[in-house]
Design a binder for these strands. Structure first.
Lengths: 195, 195
DNA sequence: GTTAGCATGTAAGGAGTTACATGATTTT
DNA sequence: AAAATCATGTAACTCCTTACATGCTAAC
């Protein structure tokens, strides 16, 4: 699939920024937070954690913890100051891969740890990426409508519809952010709207 | 020996089954047919073609062709009998990875080369894969609704909606196939769906 | 006392991308 | 003549998955 490394690192840092945890737990949390794509293997997770430690972004701490298996050997990972700085840099980054499906999903799931401007920037970047795809598909479709068989057409039309819906969704989110409102789905909190 | 991704091999075989072509042209055709995901690099394409030749599924033919640059050295690839057999096997396969996003997209775009039963089988397999994902997401969501921040919630809700729409779409396609109808050719007629 | 879940890792290998290398032919 | 496009390929590198290896703790 895509280049997950950037996305995986970001997700790890983001989750650990909320709560330091050890690998096994972290993995489950990542899967449930990102819920979107399948699974994350230990073969990806542990080496990535190791790399982050080597780069001084995380610290390991041998921990006899307060979990369900209190005496089990486990290693709790926490962000260093450099880790926090790196996370803030990455989450606001616009580099290559910044608007990929996976990377965007991770970033959005970490919106709670970002500022409004960053959020708007990410949503707009994502929208523009999708609009590019949309334009490509439409060109493609109008160019070869007769040469494509009906199933391919059906498939592409469906992809197009999905893209358009996603753009509308992003537009709504952007409006909300610009209006200063929280995305208030089922939240019990105030719905400030505007004052 | 190098067994490349099932989806790419299948797509190559499917396209070459329609029209023998050389690599450069093939790549463009793959991109426009699959339109969905980005690009295919030569670093992936040529080694895969080579592997298919080594396995006796394709034949190379040095060709001074009828294209735009008629004298250019190019290699036209065509399916052998074994290639045709392999393609038919693969396209109807239910092995691991058979219902992945990419693999499904490739298979559906090759529906024109398959029989009704195969098509129904693929559509149903895909649907059941999506229903699994759906169930996962729903469990996940109801289990941790309060522990997820509102952005993560919004994101997952959007993913859920998209999944549900895709399942409905598949249901419609399956019904059509079972009714023996073609999926509304290139006709300008209604594309109502339901809304 | 065995099965299931917790917990951490490594080795081999698959699948692909990027960047490079080469050269022909057509267009400007 | 330069630039663009056609055309084929390779080498190095990246990132991830699978399968393995190890051992503790809880529950049946």
């Amino acid at each position: 699939m895509a280049k997950r490394s950037a996305a995986l690192e970001l997700a790890i840092l983001g989750v650990l920024a909320q709560t330091p945890q050890h690998g096994y737990e972290l993995r489950k949390r990542l899967i449930s937070v990102l819920g979107l794509f399948s699974t994350i293997s230990y073969g990806a997770l542990y080496p990535t954690l190791k790399s982050l430690v080597e780069r001084g972004l995380l610290v390991e701490q041998d921990d006899i913890g307060t979990g369900k298996y209190p005496k089990r050997t486990r290693i709790t990972y926490a962000l260093t100051d450099a880790g926090v700085a790196y996370f803030n840099e990455m989450v606001a980054d616009s580099g290559p891969g910044a608007w990929d499906d996976d990377t965007f999903a991770v970033r959005m799931s970490l919106f709670g740890q970002t500022e409004v401007n960053t959020r708007i920037h990410i949503l707009q970047g994502r929208r523009s990426r999708l609009e590019d795809r949309l334009a490509n598909l439409q060109t493609n479709l109008s160019k070869g409508r007769e040469r494509l068989d009906s199933y391919t057409l059906e498939l592409q039309q469906h992809g197009l519809d999905a893209l358009e819906r996603e753009v509308r969704w992003l537009n709504e989110l952007i409006s909300r952010e610009q209006a200063g409102g929280a995305p208030t789905k089922g939240s019990p909190e105030n719905v400030p709207g505007k004052k």
